[in-house]
Nucleic acid binder design. Structure first.
Lengths: 151, 151
DNA sequence: TCAAATCGGATCAGATCGTTCCGATTGGCA
DNA sequence: TGCCAATCGGAACGATCTGATCCGATTTGA
């Protein structure tokens, strides 16, 4: 019941990127790695995955870099988790194939897992990058409306 | 973002135990393993952990076994997760020590993780064994009141 | 007192995660 | 027009953790 550290780093990187949203047009992995303290190779790997998932638009070559593909208020932690770790599924039952569950035949718990899954996913989808990007103690100054899960 | 399969098995075992709540006084690992399809060694290991966590009361020796220490409606999925996997912490930041985070110095995301953590934990704590124990399709007959997270 | 049955802890293989490195691609510059 | 530098993209390696199996400790009943 813990996010992978790669996901943790991804959130830190994207939050930093969200803060630079109005600044330079393009960011690069080296710059964000230095600013956040995330190891450069790891940052590069994350840029790959986030780009593949469509959360950032990346441009290769000299002067290239990346930028958020959507405004920070439209990117949730659930999006980041799915981009880095894959689909949010609590158990093998919920997975599309739901094959390799050796007790799927008479498993009576299975029908309930979907609801649990959606509950957890909803909790993660209720937090946006815009909320994370605000400075600690200055949340009142944010133009974003906090969701109930953060209350 | 996935529960360990041990946790999955633990929920299946405890749900089966909850169904036998009004039946025989003591259950044993062998019996539940056969009934649910969980491998016996794994079931034994889970009994150990669940007993150590106080979710079940176990008695050793001939004729021994275990039973739920609380009514099924008072045991939530969050309890099971914590018993098998340890405390529910999304990131290293939330952990008590919060040491080995090499960017804790100027990490601006850290203050927000606690809220996310509680949101997820709340989602898991809103589902009880009593809800999982009901037969699929007969939820209306359950005496338990469904929680909002399942709505 | 003996024996059977059960829980409890220790051991080992397997898989996943995290890190690191190298190649492919692109744009700028002479 | 050709070369070079900078960046993303994918592949390989090592470490850590999980999950399954086995054997010993403990207790009750005959």
């Amino acid at each position: 019941m813990r996010l992978s550290s790669l996901t943790d780093y991804a959130v830190v990187l994207l939050t930093a990127a969200a803060r630079h949203c109005g600044g330079v047009a393009r960011l690069n992995a080296t710059m964000l790695a230095e600013e956040t303290g995330v190891p450069l190779p790891t940052a590069q790997k994350l840029v790959s995955r986030l780009s593949a998932a469509g959360l950032i638009d990346s441009v290769r070559g000299t002067g290239g870099g990346f930028r958020l593909s959507r405004p920070p208020s439209a990117i949730t932690i659930a999006d980041v988790v799915e981009a880095v770790e894959g689909p949010i599924v609590m158990t093998a039952c919920v997975d599309a194939g739901d094959h390799d569950c050796n007790l799927s035949g008479n498993c009576r718990v299975k029908p309930h897992w979907n609801a649990v899954n959606e509950a957890v996913r909803g909790a993660l989808a209720g937090v946006t990058l815009a909320q994370l990007a605000v400075q600690p103690g200055t949340q009142a100054a944010s133009s974003e409306t906090p969701t109930r899960v953060l209350a």
